[in-house]
Design a protein around this nucleic acid. Structure first.
Lengths: 360, 360
DNA sequence: ATGAAAGCGCTAACAC
DNA sequence: GTGTTAGCGCTTTCAT
């Protein structure tokens, strides 16, 4: 067993060795203010037990030195990072052309900033990306909580989060686990467009949605179905992959089949923003006019739709509110608030433009 | 002076006191693998000086335990966080409707991920936000480097960064300081549209740009001017604020004045994506048809422009490449590479659609 | 109210 | 090749 010299001596040796000071520490502040580091720490954390005079003196030194405590050191001891993680998909140009994720991210960042929390971002293109995002953000305690797109994580990751009791909220519903989430009323929104189309006199209304196993697609399908059923009509739903080039080709083929056959639908409910452009491209290639040959209603509005030819009628989602709700829910969870609602479902509204035609 | 008991004894006391283990540390791994923490650390960091057998044994324990080192603790000692900061503007719905910042952010995040770096995001709405972003990200060493929109920081912050030698790159040129940055060839792009308009037979071509003191606005103005001068024509440039509601009204008033007077321009070069929608709205309200009454060319393309009425002719910026270049430049800077180019200027290309009309 | 010092989990320098 | 330990900058008891 050896004798450890007191900190001050060790310190002195170290600084004598390298000489040059690279940055300020709490010890510098303490020395200049003529107090101990513990006292400075208390001032920094607005903890009680510091005399008014001492406090102002320390504060002045902090100000003069322009001192800012080191986040890593602080995190290490308090076991919180002051950051939340956000994992969103990033799959091709359309998901960024749509304003859904950007607006959501903005809202989350805003809300976090209001609580002096930072946002650590991961965008995931592939399964691999998702896993590396998961690894790099969650492991190593880089963040205190997580907002994640419902479709992002697989069952394995979700279950692990659940098991660890790690605070997270999903945007949208996961196919795998039931957990805190925020979402829009998908069924209601789908019903809104479908009923609009029906009201305009259409009887053969088809739906084009994303992959059938996604809960949001399922919900939109249900809304569409219920509206059709209420009108005594047969639903005709088609599904396609989102995003990539092959998906666009697939969607076109689907629409060629669908719109080439007789009797072909007179109206199409495009149940996802990502599918609007491919659908438009397909009708154009087929020489079909919207809305006279085919009426088009979409899920997920975009400000630019106003200026499309024709202006697109779409269900508008309160994306900004959604992001804020996600962040609020997460912070509630992180603070262990038992009273917080388990999930938040926000209403949609229909923005009527001209792509569905007008009343006959 | 007192005798400090060896770490192991202290540790034993501590764990005896609380009992319950909440998470794994390097010590747990060391104990299970029957080695010291130093050895585990070497394995983790792929440092030399560990026998092959020992290495695999330690690796196995790490695997079995699903151990992941604590990022804060590591950062504290290595003095690097493994994150870069990104500060982008977020000013109203248009900047998110445009895909510029989202795509840029995506590219940066991708590039960072490829280097196992995280991205800490700040969006800044106001001057205040910028400052709090600056404080929370830069101070406290939360990030190792920074990508920042050129217009985001004021002179004070920029100079502070420069003075501290903190690695950062700007997207766009700052009005205040000359520093490493990535940007597109603004003058060239502006020339491209203007020449296109000129080639189509237009002689009275006006330009509507953002605030005159922004370098990018100035550059676009120069490009426009040089194209006009080459054709022996007088430039007519107008400036407006970006973004908010009052700006939209201002732009409309400007256009009313501009287009109401005789001889009015037959073509308008809208020198920023944010101004396209207001310009379109103004022409529509005035009952002016595009392109027959007024030809319209824009800076900053968007995939949706293809489906506008009429489809918008615009200068396309390689935004994704820009983001990647920004990140690459930053990493080069962080690694102290002296060979790296001081700035990266990327070319634009003109996407001709129908809003400028066709050759008479 | 204040100071002293232990210790957060890790890396790196050094001893063996 | 492996173990020991100082120390990163901070918070948090615990004495005083």
């Amino acid at each position: 067993m050896r004798v450890a010299p007191p900190r001050s001596a060790r310190r002195r040796r170290a600084s004598a060795a390298d000489g040059a000071k690279t940055h300020l520490t709490i010890r510098d502040v303490a020395a200049l203010a003529g107090v101990s580091q513990g006292t400075v720490s208390k001032v920094l954390n607005e903890a009680p037990g510091v005399g008014a005079g001492t406090r102002t003196r320390v504060l002045k030194v902090i100000q003069d030195l322009d001192y800012q405590p080191d986040a890593s050191a602080r995190s290490l001891v308090v076991r919180r990072t002051g950051s939340i993680g956000v994992i969103i998909p990033h799959t091709g140009s359309y998901s960024m052309a749509s304003s859904y994720w950007p607006v959501l991210l903005t809202a989350i960042t805003e809300t976090a900033a209001a609580r002096s929390q930072n946002v650590l971002l991961s965008t995931a293109r592939s399964e691999e990306d998702v896993d590396s995002a998961y690894q790099s953000i969650l492991r190593g305690r880089r963040v205190d909580g997580l907002v994640v797109g419902a479709e992002q994580f697989g069952q394995k990751q979700l279950v692990e989060l659940l098991f660890k009791g790690f605070p997270f909220v999903m945007v949208g519903k996961s196919p795998f686990v039931s957990h805190w989430h925020v979402d829009v009323d998908n069924a209601g929104g789908a019903r809104l467009v479908t009923e609009h189309l029906l009201r305009l006199g259409h009887r053969r209304v088809a739906m084009l949605g994303g992959p059938a196993h996604f809960p949001c697609v399922h919900e939109r399908l249900e809304g569409y179905r219920s509206a059709m059923a209420a009108a005594g009509l047969e639903p005709r739903a088609y599904h396609s992959a989102y995003h990539d080039e092959t998906a666009v080709r697939y969607i076109k083929e689907l629409l060629f089949d669908l719109l080439g056959a007789e009797p072909r639908p007179t109206a199409l409910f495009v149940a996802a923003g990502d599918l609007v452009i491919p659908a438009l491209a397909a009708t154009r290639e087929m020489g079909l006019r919207v809305p006279s040959d085919l009426a088009l209603g979409a899920f997920d509005d975009h400000p630019y739709y106003e200026h499309f030819d024709p202006p697109i009628t779409a269900v508008s989602q309160p994306v900004h509110d959604l992001g804020q709700a996600a962040a609020d829910l997460l912070f509630a969870l992180m603070e262990g608030e038992a009273t917080a609602a388990r999930d938040v479902i926000l209403p949609t509204r229909l923005v009527v433009r001209r792509s569905c035609g007008s009343v006959a």
